[in-house]
Design a protein around this nucleic acid. Sequence first.
DNA 1: ATCATAAAGTGACATCTATCATCATGTATT
DNA 2: AATACATGATGATAGATGTCACTTTATGAT
Lengths: 244, 244
Amino acid sequence: MSLYDNNHTHKERQYPYLSQMKCDCDNCELKSIFYATIKESEVEEYCKSRIEKEVKTGELIISQGDYINDFIYLKEGLVKLYRDTPHGQQIISLGKPLDFVSLLSVFGNDTYSYSVSAINDSVICILSIKEIRQLIHENGDFALKIISTLNKASERILFDHLDLSQKRLNGRVASVLLYFADVFGMNKYELPITRKEIAQLVGMSIENVIRAISEFRRDNILNVYGKRIEIVDTTMLRRIRDLN
Amino acid sequence: MSLYDNNHTHKERQYPYLSQMKCDCDNCELKSIFYATIKESEVEEYCKSRIEKEVKTGELIISQGDYINDFIYLKEGLVKLYRDTPHGQQIISLGKPLDFVSLLSVFGNDTYSYSVSAINDSVICILSIKEIRQLIHENGDFALKIISTLNKASERILFDHLDLSQKRLNGRVASVLLYFADVFGMNKYELPITRKEIAQLVGMSIENVIRAISEFRRDNILNVYGKRIEIVDTTMLRRIRDLN
DNA sequence: ATCATAAAGTGACATCTATCATCATGTATT
DNA sequence: AATACATGATGATAGATGTCACTTTATGAT
Protein backbone atom coordinates (compact mmCIF):
# COMPACT_ATOMS: atom_id res chain seq x y z
CA MET A 1 0.00 0.00 0.00
CA SER A 2 2.75 2.41 0.91
CA LEU A 3 4.83 3.92 -1.82
CA TYR A 4 7.86 3.08 0.20
CA ASP A 5 9.69 -0.15 0.73
CA ASN A 6 9.72 -0.45 4.47
CA ASN A 7 11.01 -3.97 4.83
CA HIS A 8 14.52 -4.38 6.04
CA THR A 9 15.51 -7.32 3.95
CA HIS A 10 18.68 -5.69 2.73
CA LYS A 11 19.98 -4.66 6.11
CA GLU A 12 23.24 -6.37 5.25
CA ARG A 13 23.92 -3.63 2.72
CA GLN A 14 22.84 -0.82 4.96
CA TYR A 15 25.76 1.37 3.94
CA PRO A 16 25.77 1.26 0.17
CA TYR A 17 28.74 3.47 -0.54
CA LEU A 18 28.04 4.14 -4.14
CA SER A 19 31.11 6.22 -4.71
CA GLN A 20 31.20 5.31 -8.34
CA MET A 21 28.08 7.40 -8.87
CA LYS A 22 28.20 10.76 -10.50
CA CYS A 23 26.78 13.87 -8.93
CA ASP A 24 23.61 13.46 -10.88
CA CYS A 25 21.11 15.64 -9.05
CA ASP A 26 19.91 18.15 -11.58
CA ASN A 27 18.98 20.77 -9.07
CA CYS A 28 21.60 20.13 -6.42
CA GLU A 29 22.44 23.50 -4.97
CA LEU A 30 25.71 22.28 -3.60
CA LYS A 31 26.70 20.96 -7.01
CA SER A 32 25.77 24.26 -8.58
CA ILE A 33 27.92 26.04 -6.03
CA PHE A 34 30.76 23.71 -6.91
CA TYR A 35 30.36 24.30 -10.60
CA ALA A 36 30.08 28.05 -10.16
CA THR A 37 33.19 28.37 -8.06
CA ILE A 38 35.72 25.63 -8.73
CA LYS A 39 37.35 23.96 -11.71
CA GLU A 40 35.46 21.16 -13.37
CA SER A 41 38.25 18.70 -12.75
CA GLU A 42 38.04 19.46 -9.07
CA VAL A 43 34.29 19.06 -9.07
CA GLU A 44 34.81 15.52 -10.33
CA GLU A 45 37.14 14.93 -7.43
CA TYR A 46 34.60 16.05 -4.85
CA CYS A 47 31.94 14.00 -6.55
CA LYS A 48 34.08 10.95 -6.09
CA SER A 49 34.83 11.58 -2.44
CA ARG A 50 31.16 12.10 -1.82
CA ILE A 51 29.20 9.28 -0.27
CA GLU A 52 25.63 8.57 -1.13
CA LYS A 53 23.67 6.72 1.51
CA GLU A 54 20.19 5.30 1.68
CA VAL A 55 18.34 5.68 4.95
CA LYS A 56 15.10 3.98 5.85
CA THR A 57 12.03 5.55 7.38
CA GLY A 58 12.65 6.29 11.03
CA GLU A 59 16.39 5.81 10.78
CA LEU A 60 18.60 8.22 12.71
CA ILE A 61 20.94 10.23 10.51
CA ILE A 62 22.40 12.54 13.11
CA SER A 63 22.15 12.21 16.86
CA GLN A 64 22.27 15.22 19.15
CA GLY A 65 25.78 15.33 20.60
CA ASP A 66 27.45 13.58 17.67
CA TYR A 67 30.75 14.97 16.55
CA ILE A 68 30.39 16.92 13.34
CA ASN A 69 32.47 15.12 10.74
CA ASP A 70 30.17 15.30 7.77
CA PHE A 71 28.44 17.86 5.70
CA ILE A 72 25.10 16.33 4.76
CA TYR A 73 22.73 17.13 1.97
CA LEU A 74 19.33 15.58 1.24
CA LYS A 75 19.00 14.12 -2.22
CA GLU A 76 15.70 12.29 -1.94
CA GLY A 77 13.06 11.80 0.70
CA LEU A 78 12.16 13.78 3.76
CA VAL A 79 13.86 14.30 7.10
CA LYS A 80 13.13 16.04 10.38
CA LEU A 81 15.51 18.09 12.49
CA TYR A 82 14.55 17.93 16.14
CA ARG A 83 15.84 18.18 19.65
CA ASP A 84 14.95 16.42 22.84
CA THR A 85 13.52 18.59 25.56
CA PRO A 86 11.94 17.94 28.98
CA HIS A 87 8.60 18.29 27.19
CA GLY A 88 9.44 15.65 24.61
CA GLN A 89 10.73 16.03 21.08
CA GLN A 90 10.57 19.44 19.54
CA ILE A 91 10.79 19.49 15.75
CA ILE A 92 12.96 22.37 14.54
CA SER A 93 12.30 21.99 10.85
CA LEU A 94 11.61 19.58 8.04
CA GLY A 95 14.11 19.00 5.29
CA LYS A 96 12.94 18.28 1.79
CA PRO A 97 15.02 17.18 -1.19
CA LEU A 98 17.90 19.51 -1.95
CA ASP A 99 17.88 21.04 1.51
CA PHE A 100 20.97 21.10 3.62
CA VAL A 101 20.71 18.79 6.57
CA SER A 102 23.82 20.24 8.13
CA LEU A 103 22.68 23.62 9.23
CA LEU A 104 22.94 26.11 12.00
CA SER A 105 26.19 25.61 13.78
CA VAL A 106 27.87 23.05 11.51
CA PHE A 107 30.75 25.46 11.27
CA GLY A 108 30.33 26.87 14.75
CA ASN A 109 30.38 23.84 17.01
CA ASP A 110 32.14 20.53 17.45
CA THR A 111 28.96 18.60 18.08
CA TYR A 112 25.44 18.66 16.74
CA SER A 113 22.88 20.44 18.88
CA TYR A 114 20.02 18.60 17.24
CA SER A 115 19.12 15.20 15.82
CA VAL A 116 18.03 14.32 12.31
CA SER A 117 16.03 11.30 11.29
CA ALA A 118 14.37 10.14 8.10
CA ILE A 119 10.63 10.64 7.84
CA ASN A 120 10.50 8.76 4.55
CA ASP A 121 13.05 6.50 2.95
CA SER A 122 15.69 8.97 1.88
CA VAL A 123 18.97 9.36 0.12
CA ILE A 124 21.59 11.63 1.59
CA CYS A 125 24.84 12.92 0.17
CA ILE A 126 27.69 13.00 2.63
CA LEU A 127 30.76 15.12 2.19
CA SER A 128 33.60 15.51 4.62
CA ILE A 129 33.24 18.69 6.65
CA LYS A 130 37.01 18.91 6.57
CA GLU A 131 36.99 19.10 2.80
CA ILE A 132 34.28 21.71 2.83
CA ARG A 133 36.22 23.75 5.37
CA GLN A 134 39.30 23.33 3.22
CA LEU A 135 37.36 24.60 0.22
CA ILE A 136 36.10 27.60 2.17
CA HIS A 137 39.66 28.27 3.20
CA GLU A 138 41.08 28.05 -0.27
CA ASN A 139 38.31 29.31 -2.47
CA GLY A 140 36.83 32.70 -1.73
CA ASP A 141 34.00 32.37 -4.21
CA PHE A 142 32.95 29.10 -2.67
CA ALA A 143 33.15 30.62 0.81
CA LEU A 144 30.89 33.51 -0.12
CA LYS A 145 28.36 31.23 -1.80
CA ILE A 146 28.16 28.74 1.00
CA ILE A 147 27.90 31.41 3.70
CA SER A 148 25.09 33.01 1.73
CA THR A 149 23.24 29.74 1.31
CA LEU A 150 23.55 28.73 4.95
CA ASN A 151 22.52 32.19 6.10
CA LYS A 152 19.40 32.09 3.99
CA ALA A 153 18.46 28.64 5.22
CA SER A 154 18.91 29.61 8.87
CA GLU A 155 16.84 32.73 8.39
CA ARG A 156 14.10 30.71 6.72
CA ILE A 157 13.87 28.38 9.73
CA LEU A 158 13.86 31.23 12.25
CA PHE A 159 11.26 33.25 10.37
CA ASP A 160 9.03 30.24 9.93
CA HIS A 161 9.03 29.87 13.70
CA LEU A 162 8.37 33.56 14.22
CA ASP A 163 5.45 33.32 11.81
CA LEU A 164 4.05 30.20 13.44
CA SER A 165 4.32 31.68 16.92
CA GLN A 166 1.89 34.40 15.91
CA LYS A 167 -0.72 31.96 14.69
CA ARG A 168 -3.29 30.03 16.61
CA LEU A 169 -3.98 26.32 16.39
CA ASN A 170 -5.89 26.25 13.10
CA GLY A 171 -3.48 28.58 11.35
CA ARG A 172 -0.53 26.48 12.44
CA VAL A 173 -2.03 23.21 11.29
CA ALA A 174 -3.11 24.80 8.01
CA SER A 175 0.50 25.94 7.48
CA VAL A 176 1.76 22.38 7.80
CA LEU A 177 -0.86 20.92 5.47
CA LEU A 178 -0.11 23.56 2.84
CA TYR A 179 3.61 23.03 3.29
CA PHE A 180 3.27 19.38 2.27
CA ALA A 181 1.01 20.26 -0.65
CA ASP A 182 3.85 22.49 -1.78
CA VAL A 183 6.55 19.87 -1.23
CA PHE A 184 4.63 17.21 -3.14
CA GLY A 185 3.28 19.63 -5.70
CA MET A 186 -0.20 18.21 -5.19
CA ASN A 187 -3.31 18.85 -3.16
CA LYS A 188 -3.72 15.15 -2.58
CA TYR A 189 -0.96 13.38 -0.76
CA GLU A 190 0.00 10.86 1.87
CA LEU A 191 0.80 12.77 5.03
CA PRO A 192 4.35 11.69 5.82
CA ILE A 193 4.25 12.52 9.51
CA THR A 194 1.99 11.54 12.37
CA ARG A 195 -0.42 13.87 14.14
CA LYS A 196 1.98 13.73 17.05
CA GLU A 197 4.81 15.00 14.88
CA ILE A 198 2.64 17.82 13.58
CA ALA A 199 2.02 18.71 17.21
CA GLN A 200 5.75 18.67 17.96
CA LEU A 201 6.36 20.84 14.92
CA VAL A 202 3.78 23.53 15.63
CA GLY A 203 3.99 23.45 19.42
CA MET A 204 0.45 22.38 20.22
CA SER A 205 -1.02 19.29 21.88
CA ILE A 206 -1.75 16.19 19.83
CA GLU A 207 -5.44 16.29 20.68
CA ASN A 208 -5.85 19.83 19.45
CA VAL A 209 -4.00 19.11 16.22
CA ILE A 210 -6.38 16.23 15.60
CA ARG A 211 -9.33 18.45 16.45
CA ALA A 212 -8.14 21.07 13.96
CA ILE A 213 -7.88 18.48 11.18
CA SER A 214 -11.32 17.10 12.10
CA GLU A 215 -12.75 20.59 11.96
CA PHE A 216 -11.27 21.17 8.50
CA ARG A 217 -12.86 17.90 7.42
CA ARG A 218 -16.27 18.85 8.83
CA ASP A 219 -16.04 22.22 7.10
CA ASN A 220 -15.29 20.47 3.79
CA ILE A 221 -11.87 22.04 3.53
CA LEU A 222 -10.18 18.65 3.59
CA ASN A 223 -10.88 15.07 2.72
CA VAL A 224 -9.19 12.85 5.25
CA TYR A 225 -8.72 9.09 5.20
CA GLY A 226 -6.14 8.47 7.88
CA LYS A 227 -2.87 9.72 6.47
CA ARG A 228 -4.40 10.32 3.05
CA ILE A 229 -5.07 14.05 2.79
CA GLU A 230 -6.80 15.94 0.05
CA ILE A 231 -7.07 19.69 0.23
CA VAL A 232 -10.43 20.50 -1.27
CA ASP A 233 -10.65 24.20 -0.54
CA THR A 234 -7.16 25.58 -0.91
CA THR A 235 -8.32 29.17 -0.84
CA MET A 236 -10.01 28.72 2.50
CA LEU A 237 -7.10 26.81 3.97
CA ARG A 238 -4.71 29.57 2.88
CA ARG A 239 -7.01 32.12 4.41
CA ILE A 240 -7.00 30.22 7.69
CA ARG A 241 -3.21 30.01 7.56
CA ASP A 242 -2.83 33.71 6.87
CA LEU A 243 -5.49 35.05 9.22
CA ASN A 244 -5.20 32.66 12.17
CA MET B 1 17.22 60.35 36.94
CA SER B 2 18.00 58.27 33.89
CA LEU B 3 21.51 57.09 33.43
CA TYR B 4 21.27 58.15 29.86
CA ASP B 5 21.47 61.53 28.23
CA ASN B 6 18.27 61.67 26.27
CA ASN B 7 18.29 65.30 25.19
CA HIS B 8 19.03 65.98 21.60
CA THR B 9 21.11 69.13 22.02
CA HIS B 10 23.88 67.85 19.82
CA LYS B 11 21.73 66.74 16.92
CA GLU B 12 23.97 68.80 14.68
CA ARG B 13 26.75 66.28 15.27
CA GLN B 14 24.55 63.28 14.87
CA TYR B 15 27.13 61.46 12.79
CA PRO B 16 30.35 61.78 14.73
CA TYR B 17 32.66 59.91 12.40
CA LEU B 18 35.47 59.35 14.82
CA SER B 19 37.70 57.63 12.32
CA GLN B 20 40.79 58.68 14.18
CA MET B 21 39.84 56.30 16.96
CA LYS B 22 41.62 53.04 17.42
CA CYS B 23 39.83 49.74 17.64
CA ASP B 24 39.87 49.94 21.39
CA CYS B 25 37.23 47.47 22.48
CA ASP B 26 39.03 44.98 24.63
CA ASN B 27 36.61 42.17 24.00
CA CYS B 28 35.61 42.94 20.45
CA GLU B 29 35.09 39.59 18.82
CA LEU B 30 35.44 41.05 15.38
CA LYS B 31 38.74 42.61 16.33
CA SER B 32 39.94 39.34 17.76
CA ILE B 33 38.98 37.64 14.50
CA PHE B 34 40.95 40.27 12.63
CA TYR B 35 43.99 39.82 14.82
CA ALA B 36 43.78 36.06 14.63
CA THR B 37 43.57 35.93 10.88
CA ILE B 38 45.19 38.92 9.18
CA LYS B 39 48.41 40.89 9.38
CA GLU B 40 48.64 43.58 12.03
CA SER B 41 49.26 46.25 9.45
CA GLU B 42 46.05 45.30 7.73
CA VAL B 43 44.14 45.34 10.99
CA GLU B 44 45.17 48.97 11.37
CA GLU B 45 43.78 49.65 7.93
CA TYR B 46 40.40 48.15 8.73
CA CYS B 47 40.33 50.03 12.00
CA LYS B 48 40.73 53.24 10.10
CA SER B 49 38.03 52.50 7.57
CA ARG B 50 35.70 51.59 10.36
CA ILE B 51 33.15 54.15 11.42
CA GLU B 52 32.02 54.58 14.97
CA LYS B 53 28.61 56.12 15.41
CA GLU B 54 26.57 57.16 18.41
CA VAL B 55 22.87 56.45 18.31
CA LYS B 56 20.32 57.80 20.73
CA THR B 57 17.60 55.88 22.51
CA GLY B 58 14.85 54.99 20.09
CA GLU B 59 16.88 55.85 17.03
CA LEU B 60 16.55 53.56 14.03
CA ILE B 61 19.79 51.89 13.00
CA ILE B 62 18.50 49.59 10.30
CA SER B 63 15.11 49.70 8.65
CA GLN B 64 13.46 46.60 7.22
CA GLY B 65 13.99 46.74 3.46
CA ASP B 66 17.18 48.80 3.59
CA TYR B 67 19.94 47.77 1.26
CA ILE B 68 22.70 45.97 3.09
CA ASN B 69 25.80 48.09 2.69
CA ASP B 70 27.26 47.86 6.17
CA PHE B 71 28.38 45.26 8.57
CA ILE B 72 27.39 46.50 11.99
CA TYR B 73 28.67 45.64 15.41
CA LEU B 74 27.46 46.89 18.78
CA LYS B 75 30.16 48.50 20.89
CA GLU B 76 28.09 49.98 23.70
CA GLY B 77 24.45 50.10 24.68
CA LEU B 78 21.54 47.89 23.80
CA VAL B 79 19.56 47.36 20.60
CA LYS B 80 16.54 45.41 19.48
CA LEU B 81 16.09 43.48 16.25
CA TYR B 82 12.46 43.36 15.26
CA ARG B 83 10.10 43.05 12.35
CA ASP B 84 6.75 44.56 11.61
CA THR B 85 3.87 42.12 11.33
CA PRO B 86 0.08 42.44 11.00
CA HIS B 87 0.00 41.87 14.78
CA GLY B 88 2.40 44.73 15.49
CA GLN B 89 6.10 44.64 16.15
CA GLN B 90 7.67 41.31 16.89
CA ILE B 91 11.05 41.48 18.60
CA ILE B 92 13.43 38.88 17.19
CA SER B 93 16.27 39.38 19.64
CA LEU B 94 18.11 41.86 21.78
CA GLY B 95 21.67 42.81 21.03
CA LYS B 96 24.05 43.58 23.87
CA PRO B 97 27.56 45.01 23.65
CA LEU B 98 29.86 43.00 21.43
CA ASP B 99 27.00 41.32 19.60
CA PHE B 100 26.73 41.44 15.86
CA VAL B 101 23.85 43.55 14.71
CA SER B 102 24.20 42.31 11.17
CA LEU B 103 22.99 38.79 11.41
CA LEU B 104 20.96 36.19 9.65
CA SER B 105 21.02 36.94 5.99
CA VAL B 106 23.59 39.73 5.81
CA PHE B 107 25.45 37.61 3.33
CA GLY B 108 22.40 36.00 1.86
CA ASN B 109 20.16 38.90 0.84
CA ASP B 110 20.36 42.33 -0.70
CA THR B 111 18.06 43.93 1.81
CA TYR B 112 17.45 43.60 5.52
CA SER B 113 14.49 41.50 6.55
CA TYR B 114 14.29 43.15 9.94
CA SER B 115 14.76 46.50 11.62
CA VAL B 116 17.16 47.47 14.37
CA SER B 117 16.77 50.33 16.78
CA ALA B 118 18.59 51.50 19.88
CA ILE B 119 16.98 50.66 23.21
CA ASN B 120 19.58 52.68 25.08
CA ASP B 121 22.02 55.24 23.83
CA SER B 122 24.48 53.08 21.96
CA VAL B 123 27.68 53.11 20.00
CA ILE B 124 27.94 51.00 16.89
CA CYS B 125 30.90 50.11 14.74
CA ILE B 126 30.22 50.15 11.04
CA LEU B 127 32.32 48.36 8.50
CA SER B 128 31.70 48.12 4.81
CA ILE B 129 30.06 44.82 3.91
CA LYS B 130 32.03 44.96 0.69
CA GLU B 131 35.29 44.97 2.60
CA ILE B 132 34.14 42.10 4.78
CA ARG B 133 33.12 40.13 1.72
CA GLN B 134 36.47 40.95 0.18
CA LEU B 135 38.19 39.66 3.30
CA ILE B 136 36.16 36.46 3.23
CA HIS B 137 37.11 36.07 -0.39
CA GLU B 138 40.80 36.61 0.15
CA ASN B 139 41.39 35.21 3.57
CA GLY B 140 40.33 31.66 4.29
CA ASP B 141 41.04 31.85 8.00
CA PHE B 142 38.88 34.93 8.30
CA ALA B 143 36.11 33.26 6.27
CA LEU B 144 36.06 30.22 8.55
CA LYS B 145 36.03 32.34 11.71
CA ILE B 146 33.29 34.64 10.58
CA ILE B 147 31.09 31.83 9.30
CA SER B 148 31.51 30.08 12.63
CA THR B 149 30.66 33.19 14.61
CA LEU B 150 27.59 34.03 12.56
CA ASN B 151 26.40 30.44 12.68
CA LYS B 152 26.63 30.37 16.43
CA ALA B 153 24.79 33.66 16.80
CA SER B 154 21.97 32.52 14.51
CA GLU B 155 21.63 29.27 16.38
CA ARG B 156 21.51 31.10 19.70
CA ILE B 157 18.60 33.23 18.50
CA LEU B 158 16.69 30.27 17.07
CA PHE B 159 17.19 28.13 20.15
CA ASP B 160 16.18 30.95 22.46
CA HIS B 161 12.90 31.12 20.57
CA LEU B 162 12.46 27.35 20.68
CA ASP B 163 13.06 27.44 24.43
CA LEU B 164 10.67 30.34 24.98
CA SER B 165 7.95 28.71 22.91
CA GLN B 166 7.85 25.81 25.36
CA LYS B 167 7.35 28.07 28.35
CA ARG B 168 4.25 29.65 29.73
CA LEU B 169 3.76 33.28 30.65
CA ASN B 170 5.65 33.33 33.94
CA GLY B 171 8.56 31.34 32.61
CA ARG B 172 8.91 33.63 29.62
CA VAL B 173 8.86 36.79 31.69
CA ALA B 174 11.31 35.28 34.19
CA SER B 175 13.65 34.52 31.27
CA VAL B 176 13.67 38.15 30.23
CA LEU B 177 14.26 39.48 33.74
CA LEU B 178 17.14 37.05 34.26
CA TYR B 179 18.56 37.91 30.85
CA PHE B 180 18.93 41.54 31.87
CA ALA B 181 20.40 40.60 35.23
CA ASP B 182 22.99 38.72 33.22
CA VAL B 183 23.61 41.55 30.75
CA PHE B 184 24.07 44.11 33.51
CA GLY B 185 25.84 41.70 35.84
CA MET B 186 23.56 42.77 38.66
CA ASN B 187 20.31 41.73 40.31
CA LYS B 188 19.27 45.35 40.60
CA TYR B 189 18.90 47.27 37.39
CA GLU B 190 16.90 49.74 35.38
CA LEU B 191 14.72 47.74 33.00
CA PRO B 192 15.70 49.13 29.60
CA ILE B 193 12.55 48.10 27.78
CA THR B 194 8.86 48.73 28.35
CA ARG B 195 6.35 46.08 29.41
CA LYS B 196 5.02 46.31 25.88
CA GLU B 197 8.42 45.42 24.45
CA ILE B 198 8.72 42.47 26.82
CA ALA B 199 5.35 41.35 25.48
CA GLN B 200 6.57 41.71 21.89
CA LEU B 201 9.68 39.75 22.76
CA VAL B 202 8.01 36.81 24.49
CA GLY B 203 4.85 36.73 22.42
CA MET B 204 2.31 37.42 25.13
CA SER B 205 -0.12 40.27 25.74
CA ILE B 206 1.00 43.40 27.58
CA GLU B 207 -1.54 42.90 30.34
CA ASN B 208 -0.36 39.41 31.10
CA VAL B 209 3.28 40.45 31.16
CA ILE B 210 2.37 43.13 33.70
CA ARG B 211 0.40 40.59 35.70
CA ALA B 212 3.35 38.23 35.78
CA ILE B 213 5.65 40.95 37.09
CA SER B 214 3.05 41.96 39.67
CA GLU B 215 2.76 38.36 40.78
CA PHE B 216 6.52 38.08 41.20
CA ARG B 217 6.38 41.25 43.30
CA ARG B 218 3.56 39.93 45.48
CA ASP B 219 5.47 36.67 45.97
CA ASN B 220 8.54 38.64 47.06
CA ILE B 221 10.60 37.41 44.15
CA LEU B 222 11.07 40.95 42.86
CA ASN B 223 11.15 44.48 44.12
CA VAL B 224 9.60 46.71 41.50
CA TYR B 225 9.52 50.50 41.34
CA GLY B 226 8.43 51.23 37.82
CA LYS B 227 11.38 50.38 35.63
CA ARG B 228 13.61 49.80 38.62
CA ILE B 229 13.86 46.04 39.12
CA GLU B 230 15.54 44.14 41.89
CA ILE B 231 15.61 40.37 41.80
CA VAL B 232 15.31 39.32 45.43
CA ASP B 233 14.91 35.59 45.02
CA THR B 234 17.09 34.57 42.11
CA THR B 235 16.76 30.89 42.87
CA MET B 236 12.99 31.00 42.71
CA LEU B 237 13.00 33.11 39.54
CA ARG B 238 15.36 30.65 37.89
CA ARG B 239 13.14 27.80 38.96
CA ILE B 240 10.14 29.54 37.40
CA ARG B 241 12.10 30.11 34.20
CA ASP B 242 13.23 26.50 34.03
CA LEU B 243 10.00 24.80 35.06
CA ASN B 244 7.38 27.06 33.45
C1' DA C 1 -5.09 -15.02 12.79
C1' DT C 2 -3.75 -13.07 17.23
C1' DC C 3 -1.78 -10.09 20.09
C1' DA C 4 0.51 -5.94 21.57
C1' DT C 5 1.26 -1.41 20.66
C1' DA C 6 1.04 3.00 18.56
C1' DA C 7 -1.86 6.26 16.36
C1' DA C 8 -6.21 8.54 15.67
C1' DG C 9 -10.28 10.46 17.43
C1' DT C 10 -13.70 12.55 20.82
C1' DG C 11 -15.83 14.60 25.02
C1' DA C 12 -15.49 16.87 29.52
C1' DC C 13 -13.20 19.82 32.16
C1' DA C 14 -9.35 22.65 34.05
C1' DT C 15 -6.08 26.02 33.07
C1' DC C 16 -4.05 29.61 30.66
C1' DT C 17 -4.24 33.66 27.88
C1' DA C 18 -6.41 37.55 25.25
C1' DT C 19 -9.47 41.12 25.25
C1' DC C 20 -12.09 44.91 27.00
C1' DA C 21 -12.92 48.44 30.23
C1' DT C 22 -11.20 51.41 33.49
C1' DC C 23 -8.07 53.95 36.27
C1' DA C 24 -3.53 55.58 37.92
C1' DT C 25 0.89 57.20 37.06
C1' DG C 26 4.45 59.23 34.66
C1' DT C 27 6.44 62.05 30.93
C1' DA C 28 6.76 65.45 27.43
C1' DT C 29 4.91 69.62 25.48
C1' DT C 30 2.79 73.93 25.53
C1' DA D 1 0.24 74.73 35.76
C1' DA D 2 -2.38 72.48 32.25
C1' DT D 3 -2.81 69.29 28.73
C1' DA D 4 -2.17 65.28 26.01
C1' DC D 5 -0.34 60.94 25.60
C1' DA D 6 2.13 56.79 26.55
C1' DT D 7 2.91 53.56 30.07
C1' DG D 8 1.62 50.83 33.95
C1' DA D 9 -1.81 48.37 36.53
C1' DT D 10 -6.05 45.63 37.72
C1' DG D 11 -10.58 43.21 37.38
C1' DA D 12 -14.02 40.76 34.73
C1' DT D 13 -15.01 37.90 31.12
C1' DA D 14 -14.63 35.30 26.89
C1' DG D 15 -11.95 32.42 24.22
C1' DA D 16 -8.20 29.21 23.30
C1' DT D 17 -5.49 25.44 24.63
C1' DG D 18 -3.95 21.57 27.63
C1' DT D 19 -5.03 17.54 30.21
C1' DC D 20 -7.38 13.37 31.33
C1' DA D 21 -10.17 9.55 30.28
C1' DC D 22 -11.73 6.57 27.05
C1' DT D 23 -12.77 4.37 22.48
C1' DT D 24 -11.64 3.11 17.92
C1' DT D 25 -8.58 2.18 14.27
C1' DA D 26 -4.22 1.07 12.20
C1' DT D 27 0.23 -1.18 12.34
C1' DG D 28 3.79 -4.43 13.33
C1' DA D 29 5.45 -8.70 15.34
C1' DT D 30 4.79 -13.47 16.46
